[in-house]
Measured scan of single mutants.
Amino acid sequence: MQIFVKTLTGKTITLEVEPSDTIENVKAKIQDKEGIPPDQQRLIFAGKQLEDGRTLSDYNIQKESTLHLVLR
């Protein structure tokens, strides 16, 4: 499924993921596309910060959901 990741600069990254993918996994995909190390990434969905060990389905993230990427 496709999800979108919006950065603070207003750029939107499109990722191909599975509901069973972990947040860690998603961060690795963002690193592949954008070169941002996962340890600098914070992903936010519905106002919650997403934890590395959880999966997209844990957070009920469905196709075409938009996550927000904050760098630390």
Rank of each mutant, 00 (worst) to 15 (best):
V26I: 10
L56D: 00
G47F: 08
E18W: 07
L8S: 12
E24H: 14
D39Y: 08
K27S: 02
K33T: 08
T22D: 11
S20M: 09
L50I: 13
I36Q: 03
M1T: 05
I13G: 02
G47T: 12
T12Y: 05
E16N: 14
Q41F: 06
T9H: 14
I36S: 13
D52P: 06
E51A: 05
R72C: 02
H68K: 03
M1H: 15
P37I: 07
Q2Y: 12
D32K: 07
G35H: 08
F45L: 10
I36Y: 10
L56F: 04
S57G: 13
T22N: 05
R42K: 10
T55C: 02
T22H: 15
P37M: 15
H68V: 04
T55Q: 15
L15F: 07
R72F: 08
K33H: 14
Y59L: 05
D52V: 15
S20L: 10
V70G: 08
M1R: 03
A46Q: 12
I3P: 00
Q2I: 12
N25S: 12
T12G: 06
A28C: 02
V26P: 00
L67Q: 01
Q2S: 13
V26H: 00
L71H: 11
E51M: 10
P19S: 08
D58I: 06
R72A: 09
F45G: 03
L8A: 14
N25E: 13
L43C: 01
L8N: 15
G35I: 03
V5H: 00
S65P: 02
I30E: 00
T22V: 06
T9M: 15
Q41W: 05
I30T: 01
F4S: 05
Q41E: 02
I61V: 14
Q40V: 12
T14M: 10
D39M: 08
K48E: 10
F4K: 09
K63T: 07
T55Y: 13
G35M: 10
D58E: 10
L8F: 12
Q41V: 08
P38F: 11
L15E: 00
K6C: 03
S65L: 04
E18H: 06
L71K: 12
Q2T: 14
N25T: 09
V70F: 09
L67S: 01
I44T: 11
I30H: 00
K6Q: 09
I44N: 12
G47H: 09
L71S: 11
F45Y: 09
K48L: 15
T7H: 09
K63V: 04
R72E: 15
T55E: 11
L71N: 06
I3T: 01
G53C: 03
T9K: 06
V26Q: 00
Y59M: 04
L43Q: 00
K48I: 14
F4C: 02
I30V: 08
V17G: 02
I30W: 01
V26M: 10
I3S: 00
E18R: 10
T22C: 02
L56R: 00
G35P: 04
Q62E: 13
Q62N: 10
V70S: 04
Q40K: 04
M1Y: 14
K63C: 03
E18P: 04
I3F: 01
L50D: 00
M1W: 09
T12F: 04
I36W: 10
D39E: 15
V17A: 12
G10Q: 15
Q31L: 04
E51F: 07
S20I: 09
S20H: 12
E34F: 09
